[in-house]
Structures are given as structure tokens and as C-alpha cells.
Design a protein around this nucleic acid. Structure first.
Ligand code: FES
Ligand code: FES
Lengths: 140, 140
DNA sequence: TATATACCCGACTAAAATAGTCAAGTATTA
DNA sequence: TAATACTTGACTATTTTAGTCGGGTATATA
């Protein structure tokens, strides 16, 4: 049950962006420095965030990325989906007739994992970027 | 966000056992056949379940494994712990002063993942083996 | 008591996933 | 025109996963 770094960094980077004026572009170089994330890796991540319309890019000098929505309207579930972090705790196909072990029927635990997936997705559905900032501010 | 097969099979196998009289030993061979799980792999898994006192073993002919408790008193969290499936979505140490990125402080998202871990653990704390059987029976 | 059954245990390995890096761009602004 | 910063696909080392293998030991029953 681990999160991959891609989704972790995606949330981290977007949370970082949220702390700055939302209309002026933030460069990946700055995020990289502030959050200690490889610039080259960030580029890869932001390409996906851009394709999924979470950010838009501003090229050229003084360019960077800009959030397309207010942080409180960006749910973590969107971010995860954008970077292909699926909450799918088992590999068996939803519609396939075959179960996880190659047998014909769904296995004895199938419903349990379905329920778990829903449960976890629910967490990400109910969290947005600004939630993140608030908990941080409360402490500082 | 995937579950490893070890924990998945562990739950599967124990659920299988729960369907039979709780005092007579169930052999891994039978579980292997019924649930289509490699026997050799099951042995590895049950060694851990035994060490963690979830099952006890009965050696020799007609031997097998026996649940040490009533299925409704075996929480999924115990099973997961036994097979080292930790719900620890990020790698940063709880007590360490260093954050996930090698910096000195906890990162901007640390609290979020802590909360997620608690949330998921809660699911496993509140599910036991007999819950699993019931949902299955309702359908058949 | 022989034999089959079934647990015991450490070591090993192929394959897949992860976490990046690299090279070679293009667009924009100062 | 120089510098900044996004764009894109391919490549790779490392780690993790999902098992297998070999050689045991204990017990029941024929
Ligand atoms: S059939 Fe879906 S988890 Fe086993
Ligand atoms: S410091 Fe713990 S997740 Fe980053």
C-alpha cells in the first residue's frame, strides 16, 4: 500500500503553487528548488497535469505553469487520475468474467476489495488543494 | 495503490478456512486447489500467519492449519500486519527529523498522508473475516 | 515400521514496476 | 539574440514483487 512518487510529487508541487498568486506563472525550477524534487521529473509530471487540464503552461522567459482552477476546486482525485495513480487495489477486471486467479467466477474476496477501492477513492474525492494549505497554516 | 498478492492471498485463504469446521485442520493443498493459489507460495504465507499467531499448525498426515480465533474476532488489520503489508503510503519515517525529500522538515503534504494512512487502517480495523463470508452468502 | 502426507525454512530468481535521466528540441521575453 | 522555460519520446538503473526450489521434520495410519 504505497503511493508512487509521481502522485506524491504532483500533489506537493500543486500545493506549492497554490501558495502563490494564482494568475502569475510559477516555474518548475522554483518548485524544484523549494520542494527538492528533480526538475526533469517535475517536467514529466506537469506534462500530464497539463494534458488533464489541471494546469496550463506559459512558455518562454518568465513562463511557468498556472492553475486552471481555484485550489479549493481541485480535488485530489483529479490529480491522481491525471498522473495515472489508480486506486485499484487488485488487478482483476471489473467487467471480465474471469476472477483474479484466472478462474471463471469472481473470487471470495472480490467484493471486499471493491469496497476498499470505493472507500479510498472517497478520501481523495473529499480533499482539495486548499485543505492541504489550511492544515499547514494552522501549525505554522 | 495496489495490494500485494501476499496479503490478498492471505485474506483469501483465511476466508476459505473460515467456511469449514473451525476445529479440524485444513490443508494448504486443499486451499491451493479451491482458490487457485500456488501451494509453495501459500506455505510461505502461512509461515507468517503462524508466527503471528493467527493460525496454528497440525503436522503430519491429515494435518493442516487451524484458526486460533473465531473468524469474527480476526480483523483484517491483524492479517495485514502478519504478512508485512503495511499501510504506509509514504516512506518518510515517523520520528525522523528528515522529511521525505531529505530536507530537514516535514514536507508540505506530510500531514495529508498521515491522515490517509489512518483512514485506510480504519477500514481494516473494522473488518473481520466473518464480514467477508456474510457478503458472499447474501449473494449466493 | 514403512510410507505418505503435510508442515518448515532459507535461499534464490525472473519479471515487472518505479523513479528517475537524457537528448534534442520549441516558444517567448527582455 | 541570449536566456529562460516548457515539450516530448526514449532510455535505464534500481527496487520490488511474485513466486520457485531444495532439502528438511513431524505425525498418522495401513
Ligand atoms: S476476482 Fe476480483 S479480486 Fe479476486
Ligand atoms: S515529509 Fe513525510 S511525506 Fe514528506
Amino acid at each position: 500500500m504505497k503511493l508512487n512518487t509521481k502522485s506524491r510529487y504532483a500533489v506537493m508541487a500543486l500545493a506549492d503553487m497554490s501558495k502563490f498568486p494564482l494568475d502569475s506563472p510559477v516555474s518548475l525550477r522554483d518548485i524544484s528548488l523549494r520542494q527538492s524534487i528533480s526538475l526533469l521529473y517535475l517536467e514529466q509530471i506537469f506534462l500530464k497535469l497539463k494534458k488533464n487540464e489541471i494546469v496550463k503552461s506559459v512558455r518562454g522567459s518568465n513562463g511557468g505553469y498556472v492553475l486552471r482552477k481555484d485550489p479549493k476546486n481541485i480535488k485530489l482525485s483529479e490529480i491522481f487520475q491525471a498522473v495515472d495513480q489508480k486506486v485499484k487495489t487488485v488487478g482483476c477486471k471489473k467487467d471480465s468474467k474471469k476472477g483474479c486467479n484466472g478462474k471463471s467466477a469472481k473470487c471470495i474476496t472480490h467484493e471486499l476489495w471493491d469496497e476498499l477501492d470505493l472507500y479510498i477513492n472517497n478520501f481523495f474525492e473529499n480533499k482539495n488543494l486548499s485543505d492541504l494549505l489550511m492544515t499547514k497554516e494552522r501549525r505554522n
